[in-house]
Amino acid sequence: MSPTLSKQDMFLQRLKEDAELVQAKLQDLLSDTPHGAERTRPERLLLAMQHGVLNGGKRIRPFLMLEVARMLGTDHPGVLRAACALECVHCYSLIHDDLPAMDDDDLRRGKPTIHIAFDEATAILAGDALLTMAFDILSDEATHPNPAIRAELVLGLAQNAGVGGMAGGQSLDIESEGRNRTEDEIKQMQAMKTGALLRYACEAGAILAKSDDQTRQIMRDFGTHIGLAFQLADDLLDVTASSEQLGKTAGKDLNTNKATLVSLYGLEKTKAILEDLIEDSHKMLQPFGDHADILVAAAEFIAKRKN
């Protein structure tokens, strides 16, 4: 990587490189070849899974796992597998979010959502299969030779994706539509709905690097901060960006009267909260010096992205 590039340019280059690595590995994992005890992979279901996963995206979550592990001295192939497992869970959540019973969206990343491109039942099954595949990937010895590390990765993903994490956050989000919520209630919901997988991405990178408890806690805290920052940036974009910019329907939060900090405080105060989160996240990374430059730039990107 050229030393003449700015930190932000280095980050963007690394983000692009990692997205390409993740895309290639996901294509491999979603091939039509049965794995292990599988009998066969039904063509229509597999095509729907591929439609929901191999459709672009910034791959922020796998990027964070890869970059944290690199910063902490680990770059073995199993990290990429674990990062892809996390992306499978994220994509499953998007597929189910878009269903008529949830957010009822016709577009995702500028393309028809799976229940539009295929049908609703296939979309549900595609999400189910991707969620299950994530744990298949993590529990495989190819991800890490140490079964204790694999067990930690599986446990962490299960807890962050489940009732006390992403799924629970989605439930709170639905319950909050049309109701007044306090700042603490909104932050709790968003820390689960969006923040849980981002927090897991950062901690899992530390787990794969066999880091000590203090380092893991720093990465957990960093992930918590950028998780909330990611959601706040999303909420701001829902108000300020167009559907073309977002690749999905804009203004959904306002139309469905969702509980967000933007609806509670307005644009300017939400922007100020977002800036404070990013400043705090930078301070957390100071112990790692220049090794954290890419993650510092990633936090800036998450807060200031345009889609």
Rank of each mutant, 00 (worst) to 15 (best):
Pro3Phe: 02
Asp9Gln: 15
Phe11Cys: 10
Leu12Tyr: 10
Lys16Pro: 02
Leu21Gln: 15
Gln23Met: 13
Ala24Pro: 02
Asp28Asn: 12
Glu38Gln: 15
His51Gln: 11
Gly52Gln: 03
Asn55Asp: 13
Ile60Asn: 05
Pro62Thr: 08
Phe63Asp: 07
Met65Asp: 06
Met71Pro: 08
Thr74Gln: 15
His76Phe: 13
Pro77Gln: 04
Pro77Phe: 07
Val79Tyr: 04
Leu86Asn: 01
Cys88Lys: 04
His96Glu: 07
Asp97Gln: 02
Asp98Tyr: 00
Leu99Lys: 05
Met102Ser: 03
Pro112Asn: 11
Thr113Pro: 03
Ala117Leu: 04
Glu120Ile: 03
Thr122Tyr: 04
Ala123Thr: 04
Gly127Tyr: 01
Asp128Gln: 08
Leu130Asn: 02
Leu131Ala: 08
Thr132Val: 13
Met133Ala: 14
Ile137His: 05
Leu138Tyr: 05
Asn146Tyr: 06
Asn146His: 14
Ile149Arg: 10
Arg150Tyr: 08
Arg150Glu: 07
Glu152Asp: 14
Leu155Ala: 15
Leu157Ser: 02
Asn160Val: 00
Val163Gly: 03
Gly165Pro: 04
Ala167Ser: 10
Ala167Leu: 13
Gly168Gln: 09
Ser171Gly: 13
Asp173Met: 00
Asp173Tyr: 00
Thr182Trp: 02
Thr182Asn: 05
Met189Lys: 01
Gly205Ala: 12
Lys210Ala: 14
Ser211Val: 07
Phe222Cys: 09
Gly223Trp: 04
Ala229Leu: 07
Gln231Tyr: 12
Lys248Gly: 01
Lys252Trp: 03
Val262Tyr: 12
Lys271Gln: 15
Glu275Pro: 00
Asp276Met: 10
Leu295Trp: 12
Ala297Thr: 11
Ala303Asn: 10
Lys304Glu: 14
